[in-house]
Simulated scan of single mutants.
Amino acid sequence: MAGEATSQAVTLPITGSCHCGAVSYEMKVQPRFAVECNCSICRSLGTVWGHGEAGDIAITSAPEATLAYSRGDKELAFHTCKTCGSTTHWEAIAGEAKGRMAINLRLAEPGTIEAIGHRHFDGAETWTFLD
């Protein structure tokens, strides 16, 4: 697979923050790959996700620093900084994925996505990887 063939170790933890620095994250483990999804929300946000277990990801921010957005089945909450508007992460709040999170790797150091390996996911129609 395209993303797996180029993946290599990255410096752990993976860290990133919103533009203004009010919300930051730290991921203790390397995701299998960086995922770019074409569903309506991910396409609108321009995100590339690093998925993991909630216990392996720490979000640091002041209370109420993010706006949580959820629609449809209300299983995922997308978090955006209230100050600068950067989408930092999502968390599964219900359903089978509960306990999972993803960080927006576009907010990590340049080269992180390429080092992990970038895959494209069809979240709009087939719910499969496109590579």
Rank of each mutant, 00 (worst) to 15 (best):
Met1Val: 09
Ala2Leu: 03
Ala2Asn: 08
Glu4Tyr: 13
Glu4Gly: 11
Glu4Ser: 12
Ala5Leu: 08
Thr6Met: 11
Thr6Asp: 09
Gln8Pro: 00
Gln8Ala: 12
Gln8Arg: 15
Ala9Pro: 10
Val10Met: 04
Val10Gly: 04
Thr11Leu: 04
Pro13Lys: 12
Ile14Gly: 07
Thr15Phe: 01
Gly16Cys: 09
Gly16Ser: 10
Gly16Ile: 04
Ser17Arg: 09
Ser17Asn: 07
Cys18Val: 10
His19Met: 06
Gly21Leu: 02
Val23Met: 03
Tyr25Glu: 06
Glu26Gly: 06
Val29Arg: 13
Gln30Gly: 05
Pro31Asp: 13
Pro31Tyr: 10
Phe33Cys: 14
Ala34Leu: 02
Ala34Gln: 03
Ala34Pro: 03
Cys37Ala: 11
Cys37Gly: 01
Cys39Leu: 12
Ser40His: 10
Ser40Phe: 05
Ile41Val: 12
Ile41His: 10
Cys42Leu: 01
Arg43Met: 05
Arg43Lys: 09
Ser44Lys: 15
Gly46Met: 05
Gly46Ile: 10
Gly46Lys: 12
Val48Glu: 00
Trp49Lys: 06
Gly50Pro: 08
His51Ser: 14
His51Thr: 09
His51Trp: 08
His51Arg: 11
Gly52Thr: 13
Gly52Tyr: 13
Glu53Ala: 14
Ala54Lys: 15
Gly55Trp: 06
Asp56Met: 10
Asp56Tyr: 03
Ile57Cys: 11
Ile57Thr: 08
Ile59Lys: 05
Ile59Trp: 11
Ser61Pro: 02
Ser61Glu: 15
Ala62Ile: 07
Ala62Glu: 15
Ala62Lys: 15
Glu64Asn: 15
Thr66Lys: 04
Leu67Asp: 07
Ala68Asn: 13
Tyr69Gly: 01
Tyr69Asn: 01
Ser70His: 03
Ser70Thr: 15
Gly72Cys: 05
Asp73Gln: 13
Phe78Ser: 04
Cys81Tyr: 06
Cys81Pro: 07
Ser86Pro: 03
Thr88Arg: 06
Thr88Val: 15
Trp90Ser: 05
Glu91Ala: 11
Glu91Ser: 10
Lys98Gly: 01
Lys98Gln: 15
Lys98Leu: 14
Gly99Ala: 09
Gly99Gln: 10
Arg100Met: 15
Arg100Gln: 14
Ala102Cys: 04
Ile103Asn: 02
Asn104Ala: 10
Asn104Glu: 00
Leu105Gly: 01
Arg106Val: 08
Arg106Asp: 01
Ala108Thr: 07
Glu109Val: 03
Glu109Asn: 09
Pro110Lys: 12
Gly111Ala: 03
Gly111Trp: 04
Gly111Lys: 08
Ile116Glu: 00
Gly117Pro: 03
Gly117Leu: 08
His118Gly: 00
His118Asn: 08
Arg119Ala: 12
His120Pro: 00
Phe121Leu: 04
Phe121His: 06
Phe121Asn: 02
Phe121Ile: 03
Phe121Cys: 08
Phe121Gln: 06
Asp122Gln: 08
Asp122Pro: 03
Gly123Ile: 01
Gly123Tyr: 05
Gly123Lys: 02
Gly123Trp: 05
Ala124Asn: 13
Thr126Lys: 13
Thr126Phe: 02
Trp127Asp: 14
Trp127Lys: 05
Thr128Lys: 15
Thr128Pro: 00
Leu130Met: 14
Leu130Gln: 09
